[in-house]
Design a protein around this nucleic acid. Structure first.
Length: 903
DNA sequence: TGAATCACG
DNA sequence: ACGTACGTGATTCAA
């Protein structure tokens, strides 16, 4: 078919789209019911039905592009329909509309309106009747009509010119009923017989009865024989005596009433003329603020990209690019004009700001414009130094990074006030990729991502062209400036301003100095260890190949599994997604019967130490100062802990003697100094005692007794003079861990190597002994269900979007995190506060000691030997008084000539 | 790029 | 009945 004829046909037969608003709204609401809690706008409005309805417009209506369109609604409360007058229990048992849906109706209507489509309702009539009436009017006018509904009753309106699309799944997958499709689907029934059928079967959703015991199949059989309700009753006398005949006779009145109720009116006194139903273009002008109100990020991003592609008009205002001037020696004095606040952004060529090349910088604000340059020398000018040191509040994205970069340039900055990265993290940790463009998106501010402008992976390149680079950087700076007000407002709404001002923001400075200081690595010591490991690995390799009778890659779990479970025919113990597991706990079990497997375990241990901790650390040590400068990620974890990368200094081996030797290579950076370490004892269980208020648990901590022993005493019913066996303590320790992690009988049994039944008994006994722990767990899960998030003692927040999932696994996981996060996260709050106070104490006491590392519940320092005595008193004091809990905090301190000897 | 493994609290 | 304890990062293999 040529394009010309297609156009002609379209031009000749105009189309009308009739939408059953209420029916689709209900469909949309229940189709997205499991998303109900996830889809809430900042205003608190539920948006699940709105989202689905919007998808419906995008995917269905846009494709149809009808000439005329109308959404019909049931008239609101107070309007009695003619059906209710016939039958006062009409729709009687139907659940009242849930409030979460009711609140969406005004917005649904507005959405329809902004899509250029008329809404219509008529007191005394339902949406069905409006649709029926217009479908007849359209037929007379020679239009092709499409009806969209979730209600099959409307199929009675089907003709050659009227098709009825009934929702199949959600609101975008539809069954298209034509006379032919209807006949195929329902045993040869015609559209008008749909009414006859409903008369016999009744309608459960509208709550009117038909004939007792008559369902779809019987109804079709009767209609095929007698044609209609009238036909059935005209011939009823000739029917054989049967239960069916009896029911038909008994329920004749209800069948005829059902007939009347099921019949859709086609003569409702509708007022709109067809020409008023012309499908209007989408009103983007108003749709954007509307979507913003609903927090429709995806849709806003879509409009934004359409605007960029020139497909949709936009205001001149938005078109305007951010003002950016290249900064030069000649115009430096412009900077002294900047008032109110100063946004600062530095562009680097890689994530590791300790080593990255600093490509360019931009400073400025929304009123006074932005100034960018690649010339870092300009930063040494007195104008810039004064500006950075001055009182203007500074707005940045990642304060810690900026401090480190400036430090590299010998510069300092004062009055860091707004760090959008930190603020976004505190507001919501979910899906935080730490990218400005993504985080800005949460506030409906759109910015090209670095990947779009600079490329990613091997294609990444900082543009050589000044205009490209400076304009992107100015856009970033402008985004930071614009996000100050809305994000700080939200922070106060969440009661998190103190968490930000008193903890995270000051902490970023402390962390910056820790990173800058770094920890000294004795490279010779580590290399020596590496040589020993190399030698032993080589010998183990030889022995393994010999005993295996072949060479293979021992590092490949797949090849190892092949050897063990196929070639050597050892019975496997555990499976992974892809094959048989060769994990350490499996191999340990096998090693008891097959000594050969023990060699693999030894090989694995040494290979790990060698590659990750010997080679790995030697690769990242800074050759200039022989120090390791890790980066703490302050805005990554879901609980509020820090993490550490490049390298990870929070997982240096400690549990096995062999691995611990790595720690000998971490030494003080000055002669006559020592490594000093201090750790909280059982901080998480103490937090548990605090948040639950459990008397028994509190008592255990107040007595100063070993907590696992105390727990053993409680759950195994031992008196104070009875001795606790090693195994009882071990089991109690596993229970304590289990409680903190969100226990299950199976999980506990697995770890204790006992039966599930016994696991269950132990948990029950624990809860009996520590009843408030049980109460707290129950109530925190209930709270998570109610509000969708949990909080730590410092109002750190973690959202749990899966807490209402229908998927058991996802929901259970969310419930376990609901109990674990307040504990792990509050412990993180405590050590963060301690770190800020610790830095302050070191400064106040004019100590040379430096805080170097944080490992979740411990702090590592280096200090002159003469200061060790002071630290032994000061550090525990600062740490255990950081936060006042209703149980004491205990801190242990150690020191030595290296990190190994500090224990 | 994901899975498996193993290092830490 | 569901599957099975919380939070991380680095290395290696194999597609």
């Amino acid at each position: 078919m040529s394009l010309k004829t297609t156009v002609k046909i379209k031009a000749m037969t105009k189309t009308l789209l009739l939408i059953d608003g209420n029916s689709l709204a209900f469909r949309a609401f229940y189709a997205m019911y499991n998303q109900l809690d996830r889809m809430v706008a900042h205003t608190g409005l539920h948006t699940n039905a709105l989202v689905a309805f919007n998808n419906f417009f995008d995917q269905v209506v846009e494709k149809m592009n009808p000439d005329y369109a109308l959404v019909a609604w049931d008239a609101g409360k107070g309007a009695t329909t003619f059906r209710a007058k016939i039958f006062d229990d009409y729709k009687g048992d139907r659940q009242t509309t849930p409030p979460e849906l009711s609140e969406q109706f005004p917005y649904l209507r507005k959405m329809v309106d902004l899509h250029g489509i008329h809404s219509y309702e008529l007191p005394g009539f339902e949406a069905d009747d409006i649709i029926g009436t217009y479908s007849k009017l359209a037929e007379k006018a020679g239009l092709k009509t499409t009806i969209i509904t979730g209600d099959r009753d409307l199929t009675q309106l089907v003709t050659d010119n009227v098709s009825v699309n009934v929702t199949k799944k959600g609101v975008t997958e539809l069954d298209r009923y034509t006379p032919k499709f209807l006949a195929e689907k329902w045993g040869g029934i015609t559209p008008s017989q749909v009414i006859e059928m409903k008369s016999l079967t009744g309608d459960t959703s509208d709550h009117y009865p038909g004939v007792t015991k008559v369902g779809l199949k019987t109804a079709i059989k009767l209609l095929n024989e007698f044609g209609s309700l009238d036909g059935i009753y005209q011939h009823i006398d000739s029917m054989k005596t049967s239960k069916l005949k009896e029911n038909l006779l008994n329920d004749k009145e209800s069948a005829y009433r059902a007939h009347e109720l099921a019949t859709i009116r086609t003569d409702a006194p509708v007022e709109l003329e067809m020409k008023e139903l012309i499908n209007q273009p989408i009103n983007f002008q108003e749709l954007i603020p509307f979507y913003e109100e609903l927090d429709f990020k995806v849709q806003l991003a879509k409009i934004h990209s359409m605007q960029k592609a020139g497909m949709v008009g936009q205001d001149q205002e938005e078109e305007k690019n951010v003002q950016v001037t290249e900064l030069k020696a000649a115009n430096l004095d412009h900077l002294s004009e900047i008032k109110n606040y100063l946004t600062v952004y530095f562009q680097t060529d890689s994530d590791n700001y300790h080593t990255a090349k600093i490509s360019a910088f931009v400073v400025g604000n929304e009123n006074d414009g932005y100034f960018a340059s690649r010339d870092l020398e300009l930063l040494n000018s007195s104008v810039v130094r004064k500006l950075f040191k001055g009182d203007l509040p500074k707005y940045v994205f990642n304060a810690k990074e900026l401090i480190v970069l400036l430090n590299r340039l010998g510069l300092q900055i004062n009055n860091l006030d707004f760090d959008f990265l930190l603020v976004s993290y505190l507001l919501d940790t979910t899906d935080n990729d730490n990218q400005l463009a993504t985080l800005a998106n949460r506030f409906n501010v759109f910015l090209e991502s670095d990947a779009e402008v600079y490329g990613s992976g091997v294609k990444f390149k900082i543009p050589e062209n000044n205009e490209t680079l400076f304009s992107h950087m100015a856009n970033k700076a402008s985004t930071i400036s614009k996000l100050h007000d809305p994000s700080m407002k939200k922070l106060s709404d969440h009661q998190q301003a103190e968490l930000y001002r008193q903890i995270e923001l000051p902490l970023s400075k402390v962390l910056a100095s820790m990173e800058i200081n770094g920890i000294k690595l004795d490279q010779a010591e580590l290399k020596k260890l590496g040589q020993e490991f190399d030698q032993r690995i080589f010998e183990l390799e030889k022995q393994i190949y010999e005993e295996a009778g072949q060479e293979f890659n021992i590092n490949s779990p797949k090849q190892l599994a092949d050897l063990l479970f196929a070639h050597m025919k050892i019975p496997p113990i555990k499976k992974t997604k892809t094959g048989y597991s060769t994990a350490a706990n499996v191999l340990e079990e096998l090693a008891e019967k097959y000594p050969f497997v023990g060699l693999i375990l030894q090989y694995r241990q040494l290979a790990k130490l060698n590659s990750t901790y010997v080679k790995g650390l030697l690769e990242v040590v800074n050759p200039d100062d022989s120090k390791i400068h890790t980066r703490y990620l302050q805005t990554l974890t879901q609980t509020g802990r820090l993490s550490s990368v490049d390298p990870n200094m929070q997982n240096i081996p400690d549990r096995d003697e062999e691995g611990k030797r790595i720690r000998k290579a971490f030494v003080p950076s000055h002669e006559g100094w020592e490594i000093f370490g201090s750790d909280y004892s059982q901080i998480e269980l103490r937090v548990l005692a605090h948040v639950t208020g459990d008397e028994n648990l509190k008592k255990a901590f107040e007595s100063g007794e070993d907590i696992h022993a105390a727990t053993a005493r409680s759950i195994f019913g031992l008196s104070t003079d009875q001795k606790i066996t090693f195994d009882q303590r071990r089991r109690a320790k596993a229970v304590n861990f289990g409680i903190v992690y969100g226990i299950s009988d199976f999980g506990l049994a697995q770890r204790l190597g006992t039966s599930r039944i016994e696991g269950k008994e132990i948990i029950q006994t624990y809860f009996h002994e520590f009843p408030k722990v049980k109460n707290w767990i129950d109530s925190i899960i209930a709270l998570a269900h109610k509000q969708g998030y949990v909080e730590t003692i410092a109002q750190r927040r973690r959202y749990l979007p899966d807490i209402h999932s229908k998927n058991f696994n996802l929901r259970s996981f969310a419930e376990r995190t609901a109990t674990n996060t307040p504990i792990q996260g509050s412990a993180a709050d405590i050590i963060k506060i301690a770190m800020i106070k610790m830095q302050q104490a070191l400064d106040d006491n004019h100590l040379k000691a430096k805080m170097l590392l944080q490992v979740h519940d411990e702090l590592i320092f280096e200090a002159p030997k003469q200061e060790i005595d002071i630290l032994e008193e000061l550090v525990p004091k600062v740490m255990d008084s950081a936060v006042k809990l209703n149980v004491p905090l205990r801190v242990e301190a150690h020191h030595g000539v290296n990190w190994y000897d500090e224990k």
